[in-house]
């Protein structure tokens, strides 16, 4: 059984008098441990699909099942709890809390657990260490570079050890070197820790890190051949 199963998923938005349907009757399976890359032009619905997988949006039709949980149904409180335990989200911008240090930002998802403070701190330090930023633990986001902020965001996404990491154009606002570091990190999480990565990008180079590439256009998915990197 796949980790992620989408069946007949449709999502529509109403903007004024117009209805836009970025996803129409979409079927998709993603296996555990894949580095799945979703390509497509701006406005094609990539982020919409990612949000559906992460349970922060709901489909108008069809079902989204992740790890056996139908994330298109259920109360928002239950979905929030599910997200906290099973999904790590890396946004296009790091979206760190500016008043908290890197260590505290990484620790945040653990505030939702019953772990004692010492253990939370230890795990946050481990996650920061995994992204190579332990020495920046006490820094505020404004004291970090864009690439470092995004690596802190990745540490935040993995700290609760979720099986799925979704990343929405994680290198979109980074320079080449920083982007490369972030992509290498995501690939390592996939190969070394067995995490399932679903990454949205419109950058061909970033896409080359994926193990499976799919293009989303006009509401439909088409497989793209993976070019050797």
């Amino acid at each position: 059984m796949s980790l992620i199963e989408l069946r007949g998923v449709t999502r529509r938005y109403t903007k004024g008098e117009h209805t836009v349907a970025p996803l129409v009757d979409v079927d998709l399976d993603i296996e555990a441990g894949e580095f799945f890359v979703l390509l497509g032009p701006s406005g094609s619905g990539k982020t919409t699909l990612l949000n559906l997988l992460a349970g922060i949006d709901r489909p108008d039709g069809g079902s989204v099942v992740v790890g056996g949980t139908d994330v298109g149904a259920g109360r928002s409180k239950d979905l929030a709890r599910w997200r906290a335990a099973h999904v790590g989200y890396v946004f296009q911008r790091a979206n760190l809390v500016p008043v908290l240090t890197a260590q505290e930002n990484v620790e945040m998802p653990l505030w939702l657990t019953d772990l004692p403070a010492k253990e939370r701190s230890r795990r946050a330090a481990l996650a920061l260490s995994a992204v190579g930023l332990l020495e920046r633990a006490a820094h505020l986001p404004k004291q970090l570079s864009g690439g470092q902020e995004q690596r802190v965001a990745i540490a935040r996404a993995i700290v609760a050890d979720p099986e799925l990491i979704v990343a929405d154009e994680p290198t979109g606002s980074l320079d080449g070197e920083s982007a490369e570091a972030v992509l290498r990190l995501l690939a390592r999480l996939c190969t070394e820790r067995g995490k399932t990565i679903v990454m949205v990008t419109h950058d061909q180079h970033a896409a080359s890190y994926g193990t499976r590439l799919v293009r989303l256009e006009k509401g439909q998915l088409t497989a793209v051949e993976v070019a050797p990197r």
């Binding site: 928002s76 409180k77 929030a80 906290a84 946004f91």
Partner: peptide, 15 residues
């Protein structure tokens, strides 16, 4: 607004 949405996405409830 974006930070609060981020927190919700991370799993924090409205409450």
């Amino acid at each position: 607004i974006r930070e609060l949405a981020t927190l919700r996405a991370l799993g924090f409830s409205t409450g």
